[in-house]
């Protein structure tokens, strides 16, 4: 019952977030994020339909759609790269390297897994596979967060929200899926519910941060020394004044 309440509330929040994105015209500003979000809403609706009409098929559907959401989740990381690091060419270059490396790591991992696992079943190996894919995403996101922290990059309220919401979801998913893979099929149903709860938390973060459009603050370009001439001259005058006060009579105006 609680799961259904969370589900309906989640769908309501999805609708509010999408409504606000059109009203505040932020859909066009963050297209990758909102495309991801729209896909997630559609996946949720399909899941709900299957859950209520064909419960026996739900498990297989769940894992296939879950892999789709993992794949399109890269759009969110791309959006973070595009907006947070775009103004800093060096950092953006490092960030895109991280993104592509992690993306190829995922492709290689899936290729290796499909070659080595003979008895392939999405539902059976689902938790383990998704855990690993989410872990690669966690590494990619961690790399970008390290860049943002290390280079002290200014990020606006919207971007902070996107990063916090998605990061929270990924971190909680990795932990939850690790427990699922460890515990086996016995409590997978219960733990899958936790996955929805973690997404529910992210929805709250997104709805708060993305209520209205607020771009990332601009950093002044490097190398414009002339623009600071006035502040330098003011500072020098202040220092001279302080010096005069300390050595009265020695320095004349």
């Amino acid at each position: 019952m609680l799961s259904l309440v969370i589900w309906w509330t989640g769908l309501f929040l999805d609708a509010v977030i999408l409504f606000r994105s059109f009203r505040g015209r932020s859909f066009a500003r963050y297209p990758y994020f909102y495309t991801y979000f729209t896909c997630i809403v559609l996946v949720d609706l399909i899941r709900y339909f299957i859950y209520t009409h064909e419960p026996s098929a739900y498990r297989n559907w769940y894992w296939s759609t879950e892999f789709l959401s993992v794949a399109i989740g890269y759009g969110v990381i791309l959006e973070i790269l595009r907006h947070a690091l775009a103004r800093y060419p060096a950092v953006a270059r490092f960030g895109s390297r991280i993104l592509w490396t992690s993306f190829f790591a995922v492709l290689t991992y899936i290729a290796c897994k499909s070659l080595t696992v003979t008895n392939w079943s999405a539902a059976a190996t689902g938790a383990e596979l998704e855990r690993d894919l989410r872990t690669v995403q966690a590494f990619a996101l961690a790399g970008i967060l390290i860049l943002i922290t290390h280079y002290r990059i200014e990020i606006g309220r919207n971007m902070k929200g996107i990063i916090a919401g998605y990061g929270l979801f990924i971190a909680l998913s990795v932990m939850n899926l690790a427990v699922q893979a460890h515990a086996g099929a016995s409590i997978q149903g219960v733990l899958r519910g936790f996955q929805s709860y973690s997404f529910f938390i992210s929805q709250f973060v997104w709805i708060t941060a993305l209520w209205s459009y607020q771009p990332s603050p601009k950093a002044p370009a490097a190398g414009r020394l002339e623009s600071d001439y006035e502040s330098l001259s003011r500072r020098t005058k202040e220092m001279l004044r302080a010096l005069r006060e300390r050595i009265p009579g020695k320095l004349k105006e």
Partner: peptide, 20 residues
């Protein structure tokens, strides 16, 4: 492996709080 993955998740949460 469970501890390792939980540590990765917790590490990401720490980085998130540092960045935000």
């Amino acid at each position: 492996s469970l501890i390792l993955y939980c540590a990765i998740g917790a590490g990401l949460l720490v980085l998130l709080s540092l960045a935000v």
